[in-house]
Amino acid sequence: MPLEPYLRGDIWWARGKIEIDGQAITGYRRISTGAFTEAGARDWIAEETARQRRRYIVGDAPDALTFDDAIVLYPAKPATAKMLLRVLPELSGRTVSSITPKELRSLGPKLMPACATDTWWREIVTPVRAVINNAHDEGLCPPIRVRGYSRKERMEQDAQRGKQSRVEKTPGDRVWLAKFMGKADVYNAALAAFMFETAARIGQAVQLRPQDLDLMNGRVWLAESKGHPAQWVAISRDMVVKLANLKAKQPRAQIGYQKLPPRVFGYATPTSMHARWRTICKAAGIPYLPPHQAGRHGFYTEMRVRQGLDPISAAKAGRWADSALPDRVYAHTDLDERNLRERARSSQTS
């Protein structure tokens, strides 16, 4: 009999054979569709039927690769490997070609029901898609393209979990920075000022070694980050003085007591400074801002919004390849909404 949907727990499965003109072209199958509704299951069955018929007619060599085999081929970093381990039980033993975009998107609510759609996309869809498309690059399977979660889906999930995602970030500013530096030790004061001035990511900042400083020429060597190459970045005279007065420290490794090579700001990892920053912020009577908001967000908002620098120059100074992206993500207005409404009202009555 042809594939038919049936409910098994909360998930719809499919059972039966796939046929062409009444002739079975597959063995009897019982397989999860990953759908939470009968309509979704029937859509999956239609896609799977079309795929298997195409495979029967054209040939099945590229479709034989399993997801387990595709993972072995993929050079996953530790963080990505951890994400894939969460997904593997759902897709283990499956041929890559049988995994549909709809099924992949449905894994989010199943595996991480309390998380936002952005988290589903980042920790489920993106790593699985990368594994499959890497195998496609090797000529072993078809590629996969997955439609992103819609704004409506994001809002519905936020309502269900009782928490808003994509909360507006608060950027650092000169007032916040001055108060922070007033209570910080020289290392953390210099670190905060360095990121605000250069738009360096925290990972780039903590990696700085004494040999990365060229203070005679007023520049530092920043490591590559998120696709941007390592490069020399100019710094102000005031920053030259700050860095010249820092004695590099050897941080301890996170595991064991081994000391690492000297670092300019004395931290071993990008997360080592959070507890210390919280203490400084509390002492200064200011809200805690993570380094990315205090530095990179603060830099772009300062340049673009407060000082009115054009987007091309601001993006180049902060090493953004796409000048449109920081306007969408890193520029934050300081305008008071109540004041704006009063101005609108007064302009109508004048």
Score class of each variant (00 low, 15 high):
residue 184 A to Q: 03
residue 165 S to C: 10
residue 175 V to C: 14
residue 168 E to R: 10
residue 183 K to S: 11
residue 172 G to V: 02
residue 167 V to F: 07
residue 179 K to P: 03
residue 166 R to C: 09
residue 163 K to E: 15
residue 164 Q to H: 13
residue 188 N to A: 04
residue 191 L to D: 01
residue 174 R to V: 12
residue 162 G to S: 07
residue 189 A to W: 01
residue 171 P to V: 08
residue 191 L to Y: 02
residue 171 P to Y: 05
residue 186 V to P: 12
residue 177 L to Y: 03
residue 183 K to D: 05
residue 182 G to K: 09
residue 168 E to V: 07
residue 164 Q to G: 13
residue 175 V to F: 15
residue 179 K to R: 15
residue 176 W to V: 04
residue 185 D to S: 09
residue 182 G to H: 11
residue 166 R to P: 01
residue 189 A to C: 08
residue 171 P to W: 03
residue 168 E to T: 10
residue 167 V to C: 09
residue 186 V to G: 12
residue 167 V to I: 12
residue 185 D to H: 05
residue 184 A to W: 00
residue 190 A to P: 02
residue 187 Y to L: 11
residue 173 D to Y: 05
residue 179 K to Y: 10
residue 191 L to F: 02
residue 173 D to G: 08
residue 185 D to N: 10
residue 186 V to F: 11
residue 162 G to I: 04
residue 172 G to F: 04
residue 179 K to N: 13
residue 180 F to G: 00
residue 166 R to T: 03
residue 168 E to Y: 03
residue 182 G to P: 06
residue 163 K to Q: 14
residue 177 L to S: 05
residue 174 R to P: 08
residue 184 A to C: 07
residue 166 R to Y: 05
residue 187 Y to S: 12
residue 173 D to T: 10
residue 164 Q to E: 14
residue 170 T to R: 09
residue 165 S to K: 06
residue 182 G to R: 09
residue 190 A to W: 00
residue 183 K to Q: 13
residue 188 N to P: 02
residue 191 L to G: 00
